[in-house]
Amino acid sequence: MTDQAYNFAYLDEQTKRMIRRAILKGLAVPGYQVPFASREMPMPYGWGTGGVQVSAAVMTTDDCFKVIDQGADDTTNAVSIRSFFKRTAGVKATTRTAEASIIQTRHRIPEDALTESQILVYQVPIPEPLRFLEPRESETRKMHSLEEYGLMHVKLYEDISRHGHIATSYAYPVKVEGRYVMDPSPIPKFDNPKLGDCPAIQLFGAGREQRIYALPPYTQVISLDFEDHPFDPSKADHACGLCGAEHSYLDEVIIDDAGGRMFVCSDTDFCRSRQEDGHKGKDAA
């Protein structure tokens, strides 16, 4: 049942038009951060207001909505955002990746390959990949316009000389279609290869920082690296304790006081459907 006190999907139509125009620009210039007049939402900045505004602007009454946080549908903030849209837009909600037409995510890309009939909406805390190298927006904007990305390479190379490896393990910067360096949001670098050549539309919303950016389907997305230090999307070298999956991203769970731990899929829907299909990990009952 929709809450009649608010417009469909909460935002007023003028705000949605403004966001929709920004989305179209984002799709036309992949990887470029389009400024938009982000609104105060009824949830705090930093808790997905950008993603929520993008989802609200693209949502139709026919959609089926899924929200994940850390890959899981049942984390509290995912639950909260899902119920927000159930209440304000009356849309169907699902936890199954394959059933969803819009998936809002924080920090993960689902394990199952996405399709052309899906939209993936990312919640982005700091959209500017150069921000930790240069805190000033006026400077980083100039760097993007001049394609001046040397500083980023220097930073990655300093990692290598200090640690022997690039010491960035999430929010790993990518280059889009050979032009813009983009922050893929704090997804683990394990997920980076799924960004490129993806059949789904990927939209990124940063509410507090007032930026929207996008990757159209089948866009070329390359994780920054060096010839002698190629990008390595590695993950924990274990199989999921519950479903036995060997190539999914894993959470490490501490199970007792003696330091006992197990590894389980971070994508709860992926893990559940594997278990339903009869797959069993070593820790499964």
Binding site: F8, E13, L24, L27, A28, I201, P216
Partner: peptide, 19 residues
């Protein structure tokens, strides 16, 4: 029905621009 129809119309425009 502006909210509902503009949402559907926008999806068509967005799909067109994205693909």
């Amino acid at each position: 029905e502006p909210a509902v129809q503009s949402a559907t119309a926008f999806r068509s425009v967005m799909e067109a621009m994205a693909r």
